[in-house]
Design a binder for these strands. Structure first.
Length: 922
RNA sequence: AGGACUAUAGCUCAGUUGGUUAGAGCGCUACCUUGACAUGGUAGAGGUCCCCAGUUCGAAUCUGGGUAGUCCUACCA
């Protein structure tokens, strides 16, 4: 074995082997366990958040696979309608071609080409992360099977009246030329203005003043509203005002939606361009005047002077024109929430169009019930509240998108505008007995990508056919996802699956936090703080990283800033840490919090942990290879205290890990493993094995016992660790397993170690604690007294009881080796102790004679520190016990514990004080 | 506006049903290349558990209020 762990070559080698041998496919078993991957965008690439999510899913999958479940991790990607279409359009744009130049068919062909070309990125990354996905079952939302499912669902829901077409105000993206759903609109505060316009009363004598943040919409005003109880305006209700610039007259209406306190208390009403005004317009039967076109330019229903203008140019001109007319009362600075498209970033227009909707209210009812009655559980539970809050006030879901890339809506129209929904034109004609000469045209629109994602858990398993896979693997066991898509995806999956399959899509939703950078900032391309998980695995030099982060930046200023920040943050670039270290870092961060700050220091620490594991294995192999490890049934073995203890700790650790994984607390699982492997197995057990293995006088049975324990415990914790660190464990296990009497082609398919409660040996635990106490006591004196580590010491034990005596008798070689002692002697009862530095283990005093060794002042200072600490603690305990209320009311066991503690502390304190006294007299 | 979450060592975070000497990793200090590992070992320093009040024999933990921060939902023209 190499002296240091080199992850790169073993990782790709093992992944290849696992995949080639088909270990990722379901292996059978009585109980099924399945996870459906949240499908990433097929043309995108994985970021840190994905990496985190995949690591967690893979750990769950590997864990259950080893536990013997029939385990499926379903892999696949989605077509990401808007995002993908945008990318391809941009590429075409660079060639000076628009999609309209190409035409629909040719354009879609281009998108497929792009998908083929870029689609490998995601799957490569997934493999690099070690994800044990069943690649033989890979799916894509636009596959024929899944497309058929989408169509089937659309038709069914339409026939059930749960999908309908209607003219409504939608969120219109004037750049992408499509409607988008509420969830795809991001409203953020921006600085703007509030313009106050005077609208003259029809028939002279005065005016009303309205305030608006969007002056251009005034051209579509069809009323001015005031509050019905607003005395200032009561006399005007029912009168008309002149709408400037348009030559129209509009009524003053009363509606209690109006806030009397805001602005002037008069509101201009534009039903075709504002969601609230739309509702009001419907209440009052107002006309709806749409003044915009698909580009958000002014259309022919606007006054001639403004036709064809862009909305923001029109705004300027309208303000100027109003001012020229003396109708601009004032302009105030105003902070307002501006709605922008999450993909395009442009200001979204409420726009009146025909769209398809899902009646979400109906579907939500059983979906709410399923969470209420526990059929689906969120982990952590608090997310159920978020889910309920949204579901109980759910709005109908706009599912049509004016795009070319996606599932085309299976609806046809005749010239009279009748709608026919069905699987194909022919089917529709047949069903409705339409004459051949009647022309039908298919709806141009496609469905929201989330519509197909909502069917993911069952469409991937072959639905609408009742396949064997559906029977076995659906409902899936757990959904692993970020809280940011609870509404987008989780809720919609629950609704759709319950409706179509009358069963839940999954039993548990594990909601994890979002990965942020070291400063807590969200990672985003525009901030230039993204890290590709693969760069943490393979490493990347500074120039490469800078180039990656600034690539495709439109603004040179921003690129310069990112360049500088990157150079400051990663002056050396990023070192290669390997997949196992990255994964372990993810697990250590997987607590219940909402933010996961990714600190590069953590991964470095876990890279070191990998190295530690590697070297521990090297040590074990060096000592066990070509030796009798006592594996044979009839081998005579003798187990040392340390052997029994490490076995005991292994059982405790297995139990802790099982509990942690059961609660989705991978941070606790990883911590327990780290602690056990490093602080117990490596720091103590390996050290304790040396006095046996390197002792020429030790019996063959004792050596066999220690070798067997070394190798078997190592083999066990490799399996225990495998779901978290698949590669290093496999690599080492291959060599170690046969020596431990295990066989099998891969650690992946070995049984997961189960905790054996009978294996917990509390006597051994206590004895080792004693041993550690003595060793640490001596080391402490050594360290603080500046005694060279190489100098062997003779120590005296005093005041111990029978147990101390027998413990010493049995463990003297261990003490001598680990504390570097030349000799240990008991101070005879009543014997005069030499002046010495002292450590206490319970009642037992450990004396390191000071003659020629020890600095008097240093020892006094050390004792001073110790006694101070003890005295302080003692005072606290005494205070407690002197409190009658405590002694009366606290449980007897607690009081007893405090009493014992007080006694021990008191004795210790006295001894240290005596000791100090003697040293002072030197 | 409504709601949720967070506040513990210099940094990133654990801390189960109230009873610990409040922990870990990284960083820091001193010493050490001893035959698995310097990506290491040994020892150590470092905390007003955000503030105030309450419940309790006892609060990092429970309750109320406050402060600071983050986020979600809705939205006033």
């Amino acid at each position: 074995m190499e002296k240091t762990f080199q992850p790169a070559d073993i990782e790709t080698r093992w992944y290849q082997e696992w995949e080639d041998k088909g270990y990722f496919a379901p292996q059978g078993g009585e109980e099924a366990y399945s996870i459906m991957i949240p499908p990433p965008n097929v043309t995108g690439s994985l970021h840190m958040g994905h990496g985190f999510q995949e690591a967690i899913m893979d750990a769950l999958i590997r864990y259950h696979r080893m536990l013997g479940y029939n385990t499926l991790w379903q892999v696949g990607t989605d077509h990401a309608g808007i995002a993908t279409q945008m990318v391809v359009e941009r590429q075409l744009e660079a060639e000076g071609v628009s999609r309209h130049d190409l035409g629909r068919e040719a354009f879609v062909e281009k998108v497929w080409e792009w998908k083929e070309q870029s689609g490998g990125t995601i799957t490569r990354q997934l493999r690099r992360l070690g994800s044990s996905l069943d690649w033989s079952r890979e799916r894509f939302t636009m596959d024929p099977g899944l497309s058929e499912a989408v169509q089937e669902v659309f038709i069914r829901l339409y026939r059930e009246g749960l999908i309908y077409r209607g003219q409504r105000l939608v969120n219109w993206d004037p750049v992408l030329h499509t409607a988008i759903s509420d969830l795809e609109v991001i409203s953020e505060e921006e600085q703007g203005h509030l313009w106050h316009f005077n609208y003259p009363l029809a028939g002279g004598e005065g005016h009303l003043t309205v305030a608006t943040t969007r002056p251009e919409t005034m051209l579509g005003d069809t009323a001015v509203a005031v509050h019905p109880e607003d005395e200032r305006y009561a006399h005007l209700i029912g009168r008309m005002v002149e709408l400037p610039l348009t030559g129209r007259e509009i009524p003053v209406i009363a509606d209690d939606y109006v806030d009397r306190e805001f602005g002037t208390g008069c509101v201009k009403i534009t039903p075709a361009h504002d969601f609230n005004d739309y509702e009001m317009g419907k209440r009052h039967g107002l006309p709806m005047i749409n003044i915009l076109d698909d580009d958000a330019g002014l259309n022919n229903d606007a006054p001639e002077a403004y036709r064809g203008m862009d909305r923001f140019d029109a705004r300027k001109k309208i303000v100027a024109d109003m001012e020229a007319l003396g109708l601009l009362d004032k302009v105030e600075d105003h902070t307002l929430k501006v709605p922008r498209g999450d993909r395009s970033g442009v200001v979204i227009e409420p726009y009146l169009t025909d769209q398809w909707y899902v009646d979400a209210r109906e579907l939500a009812k059983p979906a709410i019930a399923a969470v209420e009655n526990g059929d689906i559980q969120f982990v952590p539970k608090q997310w159920e509240n978020t889910y309920f809050a949204w579901m109980r006030d759910i709005q109908d879901w706009c599912i049509s998108r004016q795009l070319w890339w996606g599932h085309r809506i299976p609806a046809w129209y005749d010239d009279a505008g009748h709608i026919y929904v069905g699987p194909s034109e022919a089917a529709v004609r047949e069903e409705h007995q339409l004459a051949d000469e009647m022309t039908l045209r298919q709806d141009e629109d496609v469905l929201d990508t989330w519509f197909s994602s909502a069917l993911w858990t069952f469409s991937t398993l072959g639905w609408p056919e009742e396949t064997e896979e559906l029977k076995i693997f659906h409902p899936s066991s757990v959904l692993v996802t970020g809280f940011d898509i609870i509404f987008f995806w989780v809720a919609r999956m629950i609704m759709m699956t319950l409706h179509l399959r009358k069963e839940v899509p999954f039993h548990t939703v594990y909601v994890h936090g979002l990965v942020r950078d070291g400063e807590g900032q969200k990672m985003s391309k525009s901030k230039g703080n993204v890290i590709d998980p693969i760069d943490l695995i393979d490493g990347i030099d500074l120039e490469g990283l800078v180039a990656k982060r600034t690539a495709g930046m439109m603004q040179p200023k921003l690129a310069a800033k990112i360049d500088k920040a990157t150079r400051r943050q990663f002056p050396e670039g990023i070192a290669p840490f390997g997949t196992d270290a990255l994964r372990f870092t993810y697990f250590s961060l997987a607590s219940t919090g909402r933010d996961i700050k990714f600190d590069i220091g953590r991964i470095e620490g876990f890279r070191n942990f990998c190295n530690k594991i590697w070297n521990a294995a090297r040590y074990v192999l060096m000592n066990c290879e070509n030796e009798d490890c006592g594996i044979a049934q009839d081998a005579e073995v003798e187990l040392s205290l340390a052997d029994r203890w490490i076995n005991s700790k292994l059982q405790e650790t297995s139990a802790t890990v099982a509990r942690a994984v059961g609660n989705y607390r991978f941070d606790l699982a990883s911590q327990a493993l780290y602690e056990f492997i490093w602080n117990e197995y490596c720091d103590w057990y390996l050290e304790l094995s040396k006095p046996v293995l390197w002792d020429d006088h030790a019996s063959a049975a004792a050596k066999r016992g220690t070798r067997r324990t070394l190798i078997q415990v190592l083999e066990s914790w490799l399996r225990l660790l495998h779901p978290l660190m698949p590669f290093i464990t496999e690599e080492i296990w291959q060599t170690v397993a046969p020596m431990a009497g295990k066989s099998g082609p891969t650690i992946m398919l070995q049984p997961y170690p189960m905790a054996d409660e009978k294996g917990v040996d509390s006597a051994a635990n206590a004895d080792i604690e004693w041993l550690k106490g003595v060793i640490v006591g001596v080391r402490n004196i050594r360290g603080e007294m500046n005694i060279p580590p190489g100098k062997a010491l003779t120590v005296l034990f005093a005041n111990g009881d029978e147990r101390d005596k027998s413990r010493l008798e049995q463990n003297a070689p261990f003490l001598k080796k680990l504390a570097k002692l030349e000799d240990i002697q008991w101070l005879p009862a009543g014997g005069e102790a030499p002046v010495a530095a002292t450590a206490l283990v319970g009642e037992l005093e450990i004396l390191v004679p000071m003659a020629g060794l020890i600095d008097k002042e240093a020892e006094l200072a050390r004792l001073e520190r110790e006694t101070e600490k003890l005295a302080k603690d003692l005072a606290r305990i005494q205070g407690k016990l002197n409190n009658a209320a405590f002694v009366d009311k606290a449980p007897a066991t607690v009081v007893e514990k405090e009493r014992d503690k007080m006694q021990a502390q008191q004795q210790a304190l006295e001894k240290l004080q005596e000791q100090a006294q003697r040293i002072r007299q030197m």
